[in-house]
Design a binder for these strands. Structure first.
Lengths: 229, 229
DNA sequence: CAGTATCCCTTATGATACTG
DNA sequence: CAGTATCATAAGGGATACTG
């Protein structure tokens, strides 16, 4: 049953929002991700079929608009006013999640960690001129998938799962959890470094610059000290 | 895939909360509904099997406690501290739902409307001594299921789908939407009455008392005037 | 009564192939 | 590339029967 039959506002909202992937997609749209492919890239594990279905449902529910992309092909998926108004819901949900749901190994897909970095936390204005290619080694993982590349570029950065063909400027040996906690504002880069969880190899200037290319996470302020899980 | 693989707090929270029925069940538990049967009654359409599964998941996620019911048989399902802390999430979600999701006919199961009345909005302290039996006729509906009974009693009220065997003290002809909107604080009883959507037959004193047995809805203050759906 | 195990079916979803 | 239609499959969920 897709319908709860309840007039309660929580039930009405849940009919639309409490579906698999829906909130993830909406989070990204609200964060400025507006194209089909970019949404797909940000959610590995979500099939394009299902993404298409969800976007349809959100449009019919009046939460997003779908309009042809003026520049380039395809559509643009943008929040309606109702969609924008989901901000407080996202904030409440994320605040709760950060406080109460422990960061478990299954939350630490390194590809997602790097994608998030590039999409959410990277401050392109702080990047140096030109292209910086960084290889990330995740030593804790099985050999398959323990190496990823990031291409940092003011005009658009991206994550590659295979050698991108450009020479590596830096190599970073890093624990996926440390990287995630750094993004979340739980630890500083220096703390990760001192704990031996982050190690950067390459030109010292560039190595020192890497952690400065970031914006502050919106979740950093949440106090999980009170948590008793 | 049950897991999003994402460290983002919204994703972590969604893994647990964004499942079918989960928020409905949690809403009820947070509202003081603590037994299996009462939870099942409050969610027609939810099978006991699934309810059982969801309660299990919520316990494992640390959102509720399950403990033997000291009085009576069965268990008590109560919020943990993490569960209590969902209050703001529920509030944000309900506020959004009330503002943006129109009350459609499929939200107006009259059984649910009456159940909600009895469970959420009824102020037992204001009930008169003894038992008051009220039949509700929902004239807009097909013959099947258009009559329901409520037994109002200080020691516990309930909804019956068949004639409960007690003589009716009042008969109410009512539009399900009007009743729901009254509960939500969108209209007053008098407005519903004047619009011909609520009609009470029976002793005038009792008829006048009926709408005074209520508590104020928590959603009443939400301004949907700005909504543009 | 208060659940839970089992079985079976429906629905949801992923893979693939396809189209503008 | 940006999706969408089709189909096979897996997962989710309901009915029933069962247990303390």
């Amino acid at each position: 049953m897709r319908n709860y039959g309840q007039y309660c506002p929580i039930a009405r909202a849940s009919e639309i929002l409490a579906e698999r992937w829906t909130l993830i997609i909406l989070r990204d749209i609200l964060n400025g991700v507006h194209t089909f492919s970019a949404l797909a890239d940000g959610a590995p594990g979500l099939s394009r079929t299902l993404l298409s279905t969800r976007l349809d449902q959100l449009q019919r529910a009046g939460v997003i608009d779908i309009s042809p992309n003026p520049s380039g092909r395809g559509n643009l998926y943008t929040p309606t006013e109702a969609g924008h108004d989901l901000g407080p819901v996202m904030l409440a949900l994320g605040t709760w999640g950060e406080r109460w749901i422990e960061l478990a190994p299954e939350h630490l897909d390194p590809g997602v960690v790097l994608e998030s970095w590039v999409r959410q936390y990277l401050d392109h204005d702080r990047l140096p001129e030109g292209r910086v290619v960084v290889r990330f080694d995740f030593p804790k993982l099985a050999v398959k998938g323990n190496q990823l590349w990031c291409i940092f570029d003011r005009s658009g950065s991206e994550v590659c799962r295979t050698y991108p063909g450009f020479e590596e400027d830096l190599v970073v040996r890093v624990d996926a959890r440390a990287l995630a906690e750094w993004h979340l504002g739980k630890i500083t880069w220096g703390q990760g470094h001192d704990a031996g969880l982050i190690e950067v190899m390459g030109p010292p200037g560039l190595a020192a610059a890497l952690p400065t290319w970031n914006k502050q996470s919106g979740w950093a302020h949440i106090d999980i000290g009170e948590r008793r899980t």
